[in-house]
Design a protein around this nucleic acid. Sequence first.
DNA 1: CTCATGACTAGCT
DNA 2: TAGCTAGCCATGA
Length: 113
Amino acid sequence: MDSPGVHQAALAERIRAVVRAIAPGQVAGYGEVARRAGLPGRARLAARVLSSNEDPQLPWHRVVRSDGRIAFPAGSEGFLEQGRRLQAEGVAVVAGRVRMPSRTTSLDEAIWG
DNA sequence: CTCATGACTAGCT
DNA sequence: TAGCTAGCCATGA
């Protein structure tokens, strides 16, 4: 199915589907979303899809950068909005960052719990 | 066509 | 930890 004849609209459709599949209280990186949509390396495309998204039902706020940072400029409206929505779902947001699934806070915690 | 831009990433210093 | 660089790719001027 991933033939070189697919349109951009179809790709955007897949990306939105993947974003919709992110469970509440969870987050995913742009690159991860793209990869799940069958588009490895297209993190930028995923970001573009969200930037041009018009669907109010799309949980775009669950998508962050690979390092857990919110992609919007700190202090911007989008930045505040995303942080607000994430915290409303129980996601810990500290200084514009969220804890990524496979990222430990400290070595001690990783070893000793 | 070329050039600049951006809700990105990984690697190196 | 932080900053810089190069690669990435769709869009618009």
